[in-house]
C-alpha cells in the first residue's frame, strides 16, 4: 500500500486480499461456524464485495472506510447474504468526503429463507467536509424469513463543531483539531497498519 490514490484494499482476517479497482464482484464465502473479519479501505473507484454466510453459525464483521476527495467518485456496494441459519453479520462503514467528493454507498443485508435465527446489522456514518461533497447511502434489507434480527442506521453530517471548539479551548489550533478528530473517527475500525495511509490522506486533503 504505497500509493493511496486509486486504491481499494481488502483484508480478510488481517491478511491482504488483492483487489483491483473496477474489478468484478469480490465474493467471500464463510463456511460453517467460521468467523471472518473483513477490512476495506476505499479511496476511489468501484468496489463490490459480496459476503456469503454459507454455513450454519458463520459470522462476519465487515469494517469499511472510504475517503473521497474532488478527484474521486466512490461507488461502494456491500452485500451480506445470510444463507444458513444462525448466521451473524455486522457491517461498520465510516468515511469522509471533502471538496467535491462523491460517494454512493449501497449496503445490502439479505436474510434468506433458510437463515432463521440470524442477526444482520449495519451502521454507517459519513462526514461531509465541504458544501460540495456528497454522500448518498442506500440501505437495502431483504428479509425472507421470520425469527431474525436486523437493524441498520445511517448518519451523514458535518464534523461536530462542539468538539472542535472544545479542543481549541484547550489550546489546540483548528488545523490540528479537525484532522485529529477525523483520524479518531476512522482509526477504530481499521487495522493499525493502515492508520498511516489514512493519516497521509488527511494531511493532503483536510
Amino acid at each position: 500500500m504505497k500509493s493511496i490514490d486509486n486504491i481499494v484494499s481488502l483484508s480478510k482476517n488481517g491478511r491482504v486480499v488483492p483487489v483491483e479497482p473496477r474489478a468484478d464482484i469480490r465474493d467471500i464465502s464463510v463456511s460453517e461456524n467460521e468467523a471472518v473479519l473483513l477490512n476495506i479501505l476505499h479511496v476511489s473507484g468501484d468496489v463490490h464485495v459480496r459476503v456469503r454466510l454459507a454455513g450454519a453459525g458463520a459470522k462476519c464483521v465487515l469494517n469499511c472506510i472510504y475517503l473521497s476527495n474532488e478527484n474521486n467518485m466512490n461507488n461502494i456496494v456491500l452485500e451480506v447474504l445470510h444463507e444458513s441459519k444462525n448466521t451473524h453479520s455486522e457491517q461498520k462503514i465510516k468515511g469522509v468526503a471533502t471538496d467535491g467528493g462523491q460517494v454512493a454507498l449501497t449496503g445490502v443485508i439479505r436474510i434468506g429463507k433458510d437463515a432463521a435465527q440470524s442477526v444482520g446489522l449495519q451502521h454507517h456514518r459519513g462526514i461531509l467536509l465541504s458544501e460540495k461533497a456528497q454522500i448518498a447511502a442506500t440501505p437495502r434489507l431483504e428479509i425472507l424469513t421470520d425469527d431474525v434480527q436486523c437493524a441498520h442506521g445511517s448518519a451523514i453530517g458535518a464534523l461536530d463543531e462542539r468538539q472542535v471548539f472544545y479542543m481549541m479551548s484547550r489550546g489546540i489550533p483548528e488545523q490540528t483539531a479537525r484532522p485529529l478528530l477525523l483520524k479518531a473517527f476512522l482509526h477504530d475500525i481499521v487495522p493499525d497498519d493502515w492508520h498511516a495511509v489514512i493519516d497521509d490522506w488527511m494531511a493532503r486533503n483536510v
Binding site: M168, S169, R170
Partner: peptide
C-alpha cells in the same frame, strides 16, 4: 484572538457540560 490563542495565552474554561471526543484518549488530548 481565536479560542486556541486565548487558551495558550492562559484562559481555561471548565465546561458546564464537557464534550465527548470518541477515539481521542485523555493522554493524547
Amino acid at each position: 484572538m481565536t479560542p486556541d490563542e486565548r487558551a495558550n495565552a492562559g484562559v481555561f474554561l471548565a465546561f458546564q457540560h464537557p464534550i465527548e471526543l470518541p477515539g481521542v484518549t485523555n493522554a493524547l488530548f
